Amino acid sequence: MSEVIDELHPWSWSSYATLADVLPAIDAAFDGEQSAAVPIPASKDVVLLLIDGLGDSLLARHADVAPTLTSLRSTIIRAGFPATTATSITSLMSGTSCGTHGVIGYSFRTDRDATRAPNRQLLNALRWTLDRSDGRSALDTYVPEEIQPLAGLLPEMAGRGVDVTYVMPGLYRGSGFSRAAFRVDGTYRPAQKPAEILAGITETLAEPGSGHRLVYAYWPDLDAAGHLFGPGSPQWVKTLGVVDRLVADLVSGLPHDTALVVTGDHGMIEADNRIDIDTTDEMLKGVEAVAGEMRVRHVYTRPGARDAVQAFWTDVVGDHAHVVAREQVLDEEWFGEEVTDVVAERVGDLVAVARGTTILTRSLTDPQIEVNMAGHHGAWTAAEQLVPVLVARG
């Protein structure tokens, strides 16, 4: 079986550390200790660079265009489920799985009880919009700090004197998702291009300071290239080369007693089999709402219809997806060992996880730019789940 379609089933997940283990490892490095889960050398300052879409399988396959990244590979960890940006970044920043922090996917329903939330509109957590990624703002409906109420580890570290700086696109500052995921204001250095990221990190580290510093930097373009053109496409490979040069430049100028940690929020597969929920006969019968993304769907069913919907969907998708009832999902700890009662309410009555290179599209409902994307992520394959941790020290 090829690497792309190898599945990491929930019962094998415990053999990997996850993105939720990275910030605790950085905290340990500040204390002069080294985490066994994610080894990071003791350092005064740490730069954490997240390359959106940097999967370990893809990096290994294209090592020839990324010699610096390849040489710095320290360990391999799991993104967490679902392997999607909103969930992964929140897990990274909070030091917990989504069963605790509550951002359980690209989009989801926040309440199962119609008497408490009559409309129960879907929340797109990444864009913080209602129902669709291009829907109207959800800020008046869903307060970010209430959807994700857990302060997490980052505020603890800041409270102990760790200075936090963000180097990432300026449009993210103050967004709904940023408010949910980044619970420390910190210093913000807007940066979109690699040169701007390099300058923002370099200038921050050059400033005098006696305490520990955490610089979080983010670059989205590798993920964008994978979505639009496919992972491994010439456009994607060219972008990976840009990432390699950025990291090489960072390493060459890394100050003494500073560690650079580079990781990704998920990998990616290229879809070649599409099952369209909107146009397949009766696939929406008994269904109130469908959330998530094309590799992992939350399916919210009408009262009393769940078993029939599960049976019908299972028959339609066959071996191309797992269609599992909510109770089994929670029992098998897909969203983490601990799932709070509030978060459990958000999980679909059914969760459908695409297998192989299948996607579960909504051609009449989702924005066409998403429907037509080549690259996707979220599910159980090694190509989506496994991300590298790259470490260098000045």
Rank of each mutant, 00 (worst) to 15 (best):
L153K: 13
H320M: 11
K193A: 15
T84Y: 07
D341N: 07
H256M: 09
V347S: 02
D140N: 15
A29F: 01
S94K: 11
E7I: 01
Q192T: 15
H62W: 04
L23K: 08
T141Q: 13
P149L: 13
L139Q: 14
R355P: 01
D131I: 09
V4R: 09
L250V: 07
E370R: 10
V339L: 10
R179G: 01
D131L: 13
E145F: 06
Q235N: 03
S43Q: 14
I359C: 00
A291E: 07
R346V: 10
P231V: 01
R355Q: 09
P194I: 06
R393F: 03
G318K: 12
G267S: 10
R306W: 02
L23F: 02
D131V: 13
T110D: 06
V299C: 08
Y188T: 07
E333Q: 12
E146N: 12
H212P: 12
G336P: 05
A206C: 01
V38Q: 11
G176M: 01
I197F: 03
V296M: 08
E270Y: 06
F177R: 00
G174F: 07
P194Y: 06
D257S: 12
V4D: 04
S175F: 01
H212T: 09
D64Y: 03
G356L: 10
D276H: 05
I269N: 00
P39Y: 08
P234Y: 00
P367I: 09
L49M: 12
A392P: 02
V103G: 05
L69R: 04
I40A: 10
Y188G: 03
A151H: 09
G336C: 14
D6L: 02
G264C: 09
T301W: 12
P169V: 09
D52H: 02
S252G: 14
L198G: 02
V317Q: 04
I269C: 12
R183C: 02
S15W: 06
L54K: 01
G336M: 12
S97A: 13
V342A: 15
A383F: 07
L254M: 07
G105R: 06
E156A: 14
T381N: 07
L8K: 00
Y216C: 00
A248E: 15
G318M: 09
L48Q: 05
I359K: 04
I104E: 04
I147E: 11
V47Q: 06
F182I: 11
A271S: 11
P10H: 10
A158R: 04
P255G: 13
V347Q: 00
V247T: 08
A352L: 12
W334S: 07
I275K: 08
A60Y: 04
T358V: 04
R179A: 13
D244M: 03
V143D: 14
P208G: 05
R362A: 02
D27S: 10
A114N: 06
L154A: 10
A374P: 00
E288Y: 11
A259S: 15
V247E: 06
A114M: 05
L330G: 09
Q235S: 05
A259C: 14
R173M: 12
